[in-house]
Amino acid sequence: MNDLLLLVLKRLGFGLLTLLVVSILIFFAVELLPGDVAEAVLGQGATPETVQAMRDQLGLDRPAVVRYLEWLGGAVTGDFGVSAVSGEPVINAIGDRFVNTLFLAAYAAVIAVPFAILLGIVVALLRNSVFDRVANVLTLTSISSPEFFLGYILILYLSVKLPLFPAIASLSSDMSLGELLHRTFLPALTLVLVVTAHMMRMTRAAIINLLASPYIEMARLKGVPPWKVIVRHALPNAWAPIINVVALNLAYLITGVVLVEVVFVYPGIGQALVDAVSKRDFPVVQASSLIFAATFILLNLAADVGAIITNPRLRHPK
């Protein structure tokens, strides 16, 4: 068990190192832009005086390395500086929005992950049957359609024609959980439709890939019924690839949902990022990018650890 802990710590260390490299990339990518932040923010109509005032305010005259270290030091303690547009601390601008995004992602994941894995097991059991084909075609269709299109279709049928759910997922702080879930159902469902296919197909492939193994044949020759061959003998050995795909999709649920947020006017971090980019609010862009990077790294780390934990050879060394 100590080996496992050591391994996790080692991976965590590598994850932090990766994040550090990413933070350097994010910070200096902005530096590479022509002109500087002050000019970019203020645009063509700026007078030299206002530009200089902003430079002073942001401390842009000092060397980039110093500013990077300051920024990094702040970021570690949760202080991402102030927004170049509103003058408010960045954390106020995106903190709540990030929580909203996490909520929507969790909502979609709680439905999509069990559903996709269960469906994957069923289609592996009924492989090459009509059910298998239909399930594959439907999930592939949903993954191949653009998210905004899926979103509008759902609004058309579940909100306009049948007024079951609200088309706009705006939030207020005094909503009960039930109301919250009801209001955000359509964006969550859109996300479920987008991520299910990938996870289901990987579950199916990972299981079917193992069906030619000698131990599966052994199970069959022991008289084990087909469903048990899949669930008890194949699935426990198929977790590693499944977990990896689940992690990728979870990361997507957090970092790739901007279109869905726009369609449903959902106040998530994706929209905040797009707004910040169009307004050239670089501190917000940097902070959001760093949060996204951290999410990706953390989820991949979790997938690695999950794959290790589900491998009996690593869990029970000789």
Binding site: P214, Y215, M218, L221, K222, V224
Partner: peptide
């Protein structure tokens, strides 16, 4: 019939035991 009246012993026991379960759990399955 399989496992109960006709049983099978495979060439490579290392590959034919399921790596995810203890030996005795596989033994008692049938």
């Amino acid at each position: 019939l399989r496992g109960s009246r006709i049983a099978y012993v495979a060439q490579s026991a290392a590959a034919s035991f399921n790596p995810a379960h203890k030996i005795i759990d596989q033994h008692t399955e049938a």
